[in-house]
């Protein structure tokens, strides 16, 4: 039995990191919107789905010009996907900005925090059903091309080039975003607005602009998460909804407001899911996010990296 665990562990870790990186990208967006807007935004899961579907639609619509998804080396995608992703990012950003403008901005002025949360839950339901209405209930894939997994560690781990690319890109994004928040004026303005919006305004920061920037940034990360999942697995209408629990678990585990925390939280939740699927039963996957969430709330409610101050 122990031998079996050791032999399967490398693959479990690889699967966990892959799932975890998608969770991490989503959780970073969730933690950013929370820290600036101060409410749990349930529509973030739907932004992940819509980002993926927008990209897929752009790919189909633009095929006469871009000639399809493209092909880079052993990957199943190339320039075509990059162009479509650009369109998907714009679509998801406009969706997020429209939600803020039409729904959340009004409620921020007149409602309480709980009204915002309930409104975001309602909006997410509507957005999910809209996906079923527009794209149908079946899952869809970016490409039908079959990929051969490369064997690593003497055959103990099988990963596709797509999966490796997605892992690398996610890591690069997380590092880039951390640097952006730490060292750029926009990043500092975002941290300042998160801590104290009134003081940020006095300091000359247009906090309404910061809020829009955060929505766009969250939508960009969400679209990337959606497309990464679409490439390495598939798109389903419930994709975003099923991700909500792991996303919140990761964001809270990492300490709400902390980008490195959300990244690490995402990886931990991904690894825990992967271990549960391998060693318990595939049906336990969704329970894992819930267990992690309960555990962290009981043991350390501020998370691993509580935002300073």
């Amino acid at each position: 039995m122990m031998d079996l665990v050791w032999l399967t562990l490398p693959q479990v870790i690889a699967n966990g990191l892959l799932q975890g990186s998608a969770i991490a990208l989503g959780a970073i967006g969730l933690t950013l919107t929370y820290s600036i807007l101060r409410f749990a935004n349930f529509t973030h899961g739907e932004t992940i789905s819509w980002g993926g579907y927008f990209t897929l639609t752009a790919l189909a619509a633009l095929t006469p010009w871009i000639g399809g998804i493209g092909k880079w080396g052993g990957l199943t995608f190339g320039w075509g996907l990059v162009v479509a992703l650009g369109v998907g990012v714009v679509g998801a950003s406009l969706l997020a900005l429209a939600l803020d403008r039409l729904l959340f901005a009004t409620l921020r002025r007149h409602g309480s925090a709980i009204t915002l949360v309930i409104a975001s839950f309602g909006a997410s339901l509507a957005l999910r059903n809209l996906i079923v209405f527009v794209y149908g209930p079946e899952s869809v894939q970016f490409t039908r091309e079959l990929v051969i997994a490369d064997r690593w560690l003497g055959g103990l781990v099988r990963v596709t080039p797509d999966q490796l690319a997605v892992l690398g890109l996610s890591a690069a994004l997380a590092v880039g975003l951390t640097v952006f928040l730490r060292f750029t004026t926009t990043g500092r303005a975002m941290r300042a607005t998160a801590e104290n919006p009134a003081l940020a305004q006095i300091t000359g920061i247009d906090t309404a602009h910061v809020v829009r920037t955060v929505w766009v940034l969250g939508a960009v990360l969400a679209t990337l998460a959606g497309v990464f999942i679409g490439i390495t697995a598939q798109l389903r209408p419930e994709l975003g909804f099923d991700l909500l629990l792991p996303l919140f678990a990761a964001a809270i585990l990492g300490g709400i407001g902390s980008v490195p925390g959300a990244m690490l939280g995402g990886l931990i939740v991904g690894l825990a899911e992967s271990a549960a699927v391998e060693y318990l039963h595939a049906g336990y996957r969704n329970a894992v996010g819930f267990l992690v969430l309960i555990a962290i709330l009981v043991i350390r409610p501020t998370g691993l990296f509580a935002a300073r101050g």
Partner: peptide, 16 residues
């Protein structure tokens, strides 16, 4: 003051 920012960051932001 922004407590989560350093002194230098507070001052840099004040004149951004």
């Amino acid at each position: 003051v922004f407590t989560t920012l350093s002194i230098a960051e507070n001052l840099a932001l004040a004149g951004f």
